[in-house]
Design a protein around this nucleic acid. Structure first.
Lengths: 348, 348
DNA sequence: GCAGCGATATACAACGTTGTAGAGTCGGCG
DNA sequence: CGCCGACTCTACAACGTTGTATATCGCTGC
């Protein structure tokens, strides 16, 4: 069907290898020969067969990205950044979704994503107790979460201290009865899922401020969908427990929290302040705009792609597993009582 | 490094081809032989090399999806659906972003996405006048937009009638001064970009209701980002022109419209009704929730994957280019004055 | 004048898989 | 009893590319 090097070679009256050399910018080719080959390539519309190249070289130049779901804004934005970072290195990205399903997470880890040289994996249900699943024989970089002992590189965020900073931001604004929306149920001791780490940061902030912990303020939500944020907030309100702030464990949940508070006629931030986590784009446009924690998503993507590319290049065993944590910063917007200084833009 | 069929064959004491037959479920194999091969596969952790298989078969079982940007919710949700639909057919999806950049759109079309058997392409800048670019030699399905004369399958939406229905929805609710946010500038006659088609629907609805067109109500915005929706709405308000409704050409813009109206203290829907287009998930959780048009995104994804798979199977020339348009429906929410009936859920 | 080198080009093999052709065995049927 | 077909398995070639080895030429330096 489409032209091969053989066809090009025939037309240009050179050997197949010479065509290959032209395509790969091998230096020692006479300009005239090169021109003839290039003309033939152009004439035939030749494009290299990447399966053959992949077979020969053992590399496909495709990487995998596995996330829970693209429809969660955070992951869409993460994928956006990953694809952009990969493109700079001439890598393609196959995207897979596991939907936070243990089976599917496990299956993806076991098989890798098909056709790829390595995998960027953002776990949801899998955690510390699944350590051995992460011992795979291909290059793997874990995103967002840390699995202790797993022999894979990690690009993590400062879940705990960033969460702590978010809650401190609320405390600084005089809030004392701070609800948390998004704890994961079925937690076991020593868990390190993002929800557990952020919960730990929440508790640490309160403890250090001498505010007593109140279990009725910690609302479990899974999965982190806005509707579940709505439901949890409605329950919180209905429970009659007093609160003057909500820390939503991610922005997606926070959208639901804002919605439920509005429905109940509770003013934000006057009666209840709200802060989220992740800094998704949409948070700039809610009413009120959403304070949040920026966890360095673009940096995570760029670093992760760089680490993966390096592992692919140098082999999995070249050096021990590395851990990078990106910087975070509080993004103060209207939902915690901070108003924008710049009237020409809603944003951070 | 990793085991090949040769290794498996050696261990199981059979020929390479027999291993291949086992892997591919060839029926005539003695149960005992099959068991021995499967044991060897298990023992060696053998997994087929897809580059080799792709080279041999001429198929990679990977398809490409090219969208403007994943961070636009609509495209993230579309990609989500496409990946899910592809997975049912055991296809992987490479995602590329062109950012609405003409050069990059053109480059993707010319090259296809690397390693793929076919491409799902969602154009933004390219349109009718670029018809010849869509004459490619690989299976191609265009999403959302129709390029007349291009020899490619299309899965389009009823842009014009859906937009007309959205505006009629506003008219039915007594609105007469309906602003439009999101027209694309530099329009030429006969353009069929989504923005042009939706604009046409808007005008048709007004004309049929004997409402005069007013150019000052048609606000250009490009690209369709929420911030640009904010800006356009601020300008609309500042211009002093009277309006009692806004039709945003997509939901992403509508988020910005809602935000700008809230900033200006304009009540939605009491003073100004707002309707969007696309039915992204987030629209259920805005305050007020966003009325919109559901354009059958899941159907688009499923149909497009099916059509592409069929083209890959049967060849590009098997039948002439097909055009499918998905059904649409108005989703009435609070922003046009419709309140939810079901108190347990925010949504449609 | 020739060894040696760089420039240029080629032939061949190999990457791991699967389609084709065919060999061998066995049971059943005429 | 002999043949046919179904079953089971194998050898070989080919998919398109690139690494390695090699051939040829012209030039440089001694």
């Amino acid at each position: 069907m489409s032209a091969t090097m053989r066809d090009v070679a025939r037309l240009a009256k050179v050997s197949i290898k010479t065509v290959s050399n032209v395509v790969n910018d091998y230096p020692h080719i006479r300009p005239e020969t090169r021109a003839r080959v290039e003309a033939a390539i152009e004439a035939l519309g030749y494009r290299p067969n990447l399966s053959a190249r992949g077979l020969r070289s053992g590399r496909t130049r495709v990487i995998g990205l596995a996330v829970p779901e693209l429809r969660q804004n955070y992951f869409a934005e993460l994928a956006d950044s990953v694809i952009a970072a990969a493109e700079e290195r001439q890598l393609s990205v196959v995207v897979g979704q596991h939907g936070g399903d243990r089976e599917r997470e496990t299956a993806i880890l076991r098989e890798g994503l098909r056709h790829t040289d390595g995998l960027l994996f953002s776990p949801e249900r899998l955690g510390q107790e699944d350590q051995e699943l992460f011992e795979v024989d291909y290059p793997l970089v874990l995103l967002g979460e840390r699995i202790f002992g797993a022999p894979a590189d990690h690009v993590a965020m400062h879940n705990t201290s960033a969460a702590q900073a978010a809650v401190e931001h609320l405390i600084e604004r005089g809030r004392r009865r701070i609800a948390l929306v998004g704890a994961h149920p079925d937690g076991r001791l020593g868990q390190v899922r993002p929800s557990d780490l952020r919960l730990a940061g929440y508790r640490r902030a309160l403890t250090e401020a001498d505010i007593p912990l109140d279990p009725t303020l910690e609302r479990p939500v899974a999965p982190w969908h806005p509707q579940n944020g709505v439901d949890a907030t409605r329950e919180l309100i209905a429970s009659g427990v007093e609160f003057d702030a909500v820390f939503a464990l991610n922005d997606t949940l926070a959208l639901g929290v804002l919605r439920a508070l509005a429905e109940a006629g509770i003013a934000v931030p006057d009666q209840v302040a709200v802060i989220g986590f992740d800094n998704i784009d949409d948070g700039r446009f809610t009413v009120p705009s959403l304070s949040t924690v920026d966890t360095g998503r673009d940096d995570i993507a760029a670093l992760a792609v760089a680490m993966l590319a390096e592992r692919i290049e140098n082999g999995t065993a070249a050096q021990p597993a590395r851990l990078v944590k990106t910087d975070f910063r509080i993004v103060a917007r209207e939902s915690t009582g901070t108003f924008e200084a710049d009237p020409t833009d809603v944003g951070d």
